[in-house]
């Protein structure tokens, strides 16, 4: 039996729109690809590019960044800052040898559960077609050293 590749996708969502869109999709019992695991941020502007690199380094095959539609940001205009970072980050990923298509930006309002579900399924198929990322473990280790911010006081 040939196993189908199941990509792991990390989704960064905005508390005000896309996280609620995911809630809406759930409430509507809309079935979509189970491959995405969401992290809730207060705003897509909170997305530190480190998070994305770290996700890839940690084993994610794709990363979804989603926020409010341009002009609808709960914090006035911070989604534009996310958008700026997104385009720069895609270029950076290409330079690092990662297909830029593994990073997706999605605008989804709190009402767009259907859209959110469809786009997640579509993105999952796109990443599936790209295959596993297989980030070089040594490179990953190196990147972790570079990118990990040292916690001031590790509680753990």
């Amino acid at each position: 039996m040939s196993e189908r590749f199941e990509p792991v996708i990390i989704g960064f969502t905005c508390n005000w729109c896309s996280y609620r869109a995911a809630d809406m999709a759930g409430m509507g019992r809309i079935q979509y690809a189970p491959n995405v695991r969401l992290i809730r941020l207060m705003c897509s502007g909170r997305l530190d590019p480190t998070f994305v690199i770290k996700a890839f380094a940690g084993g994610a095959d794709g990363v979804l960044v989603s926020g409010c539609h341009p002009g609808d940001c709960h914090y006035i205009e911070q989604n534009y800052k996310a958008m700026r970072r997104f385009y720069l980050l895609r270029k950076l990923l290409a330079q690092m040898g990662i297909e830029p298509a593994r990073l997706k930006l999605l605008w989804a309002s709190a009402a767009e559960g259907q859209l959110f579900a469809e786009e997640v399924t579509k993105f999952t198929e796109e990443v599936r077609a790209l295959g596993p990322l297989n980030w070089n473990p040594e490179a990953a280790l190196l990147s972790e050293q570079v990118l990990y911010r040292q916690p001031a006081e590790v509680a753990a």
Binding site: D48, T50, G58
Partner: peptide, 16 residues
């Protein structure tokens, strides 16, 4: 939503 908390959640989601 500190950097540490988000990065830790990321590690957790990826089962690292």
């Amino acid at each position: 939503f500190s950097d540490q908390a988000i990065l830790a959640q990321l590690d957790g989601l990826l089962l690292k």
